[in-house]
Design a protein around this nucleic acid. Structure first.
Lengths: 138, 138
DNA sequence: TATTGTTATACTCTATAACTATA
DNA sequence: TATAGTTATAGAGTATAACAATA
């Protein structure tokens, strides 16, 4: 069982590299792709910085510069939270939503190609293992 | 199926962060842990730079500085290849082997904790999915 | 000609500590 | 006191292009 974590790291590197290559015209880094895709996963394309960090597995400090760039390019906006004025709400803009949709489609495509030769329940099992690993590490 | 890649990235970040924390006294970065563990996975704890890059999912350029540091600390050595004098063979030293063994044990431990609550075949399915993703991305 | 690995270069990622504003 | 996020800082990760040595 020792090799799961190493396989995990390799698969992450390989897939991220592939995605950035396929989407090279967007000129987005792996972390920027990840942030956009995770935002698109939230209702209304919006969540707090902390929530985005939890979804990506990174600290808020890491997100600051990533969000700075995305905001500067008009792909996301930062706004106040309704109830807690310490909290920042990150939101996909209209152009950001378009881009994020493309990113999700590329991810889905890569997944579909990979899973094509595997039994149908393999993906579900893999997701369960990924969640369990994240849980065990948190 | 869209979320597999995002779950993958989160799980990788979370587990690497956890491992570096658990092994903080070793003062090794995530990539250094990965390199040592991948070396330990090879026969005699030795392989070429290219092979190590393939195992980790990174380019040879990335490995140069990582190996520089590990070599400087006496954990790995670089030597000539028997048949191809362009090739560099990276090898775990005796202290490096000791450290790598500890890294692998920590990885196995984390895996064991995560898989404890899952059906026995989940790990195998997850490994197959990870390989398929790596294959599809290469 | 093609390949292995390193150098040079330029960014990006990442975390810790200190800080501001708010709770 | 505690928490959300940013800033400052420092170091590590990453790739591309150019290079040397070898095949």
């Amino acid at each position: 069982m020792v090799f799961l974590l190493l396989d995990l790291q390799r698969a992450t590197h390989a897939t991220l590299h592939r995605l950035t290559t396929e989407l090279a015209d967007l000129k987005l880094t792996p972390s920027e792709l990840n942030a956009l895709a995770n935002l698109a996963r939230h209702p209304a394309g919006a969540c707090t910085v902390s929530e985005l960090g939890a979804a990506a597995g990174t600290r808020p400090t890491t997100l600051t510069s990533i969000l700075d760039r995305l905001e500067q390019r008009g792909l996301v906006s930062r706004g106040p939270h309704q109830r807690d004025r310490r909290t920042v709400v990150v939101r996909l803009t209209a152009p950001g939503t378009t881009v994020a949709t493309r990113v999700l489609a590329a991810m889905a495509d890569l997944e579909r190609r990979a899973l094509a030769t595997l039994p149908p329940d393999a993906a579900g099992d893999a997701a369960a293992v990924l969640h369990a690993l994240t849980e065990a590490a948190t």
